[in-house]
Amino acid sequence: MIDRRQAMLATLALGLPSVAGAQTAPPRLAGKAPVAGLPEPDETIDLWPKGAPGQPAKALIETVDERSKDSALTDRAVYGISRPRMVVFRPRIPNGNAVLITPGGGYRWVVIDKEGYEIARWLAARGWTCFVLFYRLPGEGWAAGPDVALSDAQRAMRLIRAGARDYGIMPERVAAMGFSAGGHVCADLATRFDASTYAPVDAADALAARPDVAAPIYPVQSMRLPFAHPGSRDLLLGHNPSAALESAHSPEDIVSASTPPTFLVHAEDDSVVPVENTLRLRAALKAKGIAVETHLFTHGGHGFGLRRAAGKPVERWPELFVAWAQTQGLS
């Protein structure tokens, strides 16, 4: 558990800044104007002040693709991320809560709008300070291999707590939320928050990386077939991984008494990531006595986020999350 006194000392006594120097701009399509009524965020936090560790042998070129056919609705995805960073959504009146959001993308890319900016805007409108993480992808040659996205998530959590004073948040009220493959990042962080995946960079790395609550939404979770999402599994672990490697990266096998309370959502008609991913993670959490709230919906498919949930019972999931988080002390 996070020690409140230790966290406050780190953020207040040390006075760690949330942002130092010029930061890398958010991922964007060159020359494309934002959608009317949806201003693009500008505030970012680079995770690694001296560059991300374990650079690939071949330099990456960050690329943003627009997948939407509707000019009034963006659906961007980014890959080739060599400068992992958080994009910040500040609420008008902070309620003290923060959330690290890890969008999905099958570990092929990181989606920007559908599972990043949209839920960040929704939560920020309700007082949450939101940090959308553009994490490095394990199939792009990083030295950390399958731990590279976890490294970014750990570092991000520590930087959020380091900047708690500047962001008007409480360091013991920081959630993690992830979708699909980003749900794997979220569940990995919730179960392996204290794993040593990178060499400490600065004083922020003395802070806890454990989220106070976790919300893996329709998560890629198991790395075992037939439950695993094949594309995410191949990019994370390579072809034909050993049983030991599968287990080491399946959060259901790593749940411990220190895993935070967890909120789970899945549609039973998900044809991309089987609902068994959520059911197996729930069973593992219950076996360790971890508080877990689970919502299963008949219809929703995969990747519903906010936009594809509209008009269905599953559209209530964000409200259910906020109500549940209040029961866990995030009020």
Rank of each mutant, 00 (worst) to 15 (best):
A214T: 04
A214R: 03
P216T: 03
I217H: 04
I217W: 02
I217E: 00
I217P: 00
I217A: 00
I217R: 02
Y218T: 05
Y218P: 02
Y218I: 04
P219H: 04
P219N: 06
P219E: 06
P219Q: 07
V220W: 07
Q221P: 09
Q221E: 14
Q221M: 15
Q221S: 13
Q221C: 15
S222P: 06
S222L: 06
M223K: 01
M223A: 09
R224Q: 11
R224N: 13
R224A: 14
L225H: 08
L225M: 14
L225K: 09
L225R: 12
L225E: 15
L225C: 09
P226T: 12
P226D: 08
F227D: 12
F227I: 15
F227P: 07
F227L: 15
A228H: 10
A228E: 07
A228N: 11
H229N: 07
H229P: 06
H229F: 10
P230A: 05
P230W: 03
P230F: 01
P230V: 06
P230M: 03
P230C: 03
G231A: 07
G231N: 05
G231E: 09
S232K: 13
R233K: 15
R233Y: 09
R233W: 07
R233F: 05
D234T: 10
D234P: 05
L235R: 15
L236W: 08
L236S: 06
L236H: 09
L236P: 04
L237E: 00
L237C: 00
G238T: 07
G238P: 06
G238Q: 09
H239G: 12
H239L: 13
H239W: 11
H239D: 13
H239A: 12
N240D: 11
N240H: 12
N240W: 05
N240L: 08
P241A: 03
P241M: 00
P241F: 01
P241L: 02
S242P: 02
A243R: 12
A244Y: 05
A244D: 15
A244C: 10
A244Q: 14
A244N: 08
A244K: 14
A244W: 08
A244T: 14
L245H: 09
L245P: 03
L245A: 13
E246Q: 15
S247K: 09
S247P: 00
A248Q: 04
A248Y: 02
A248R: 08
A248F: 01
H249Q: 08
H249I: 03
H249N: 14
H249F: 15
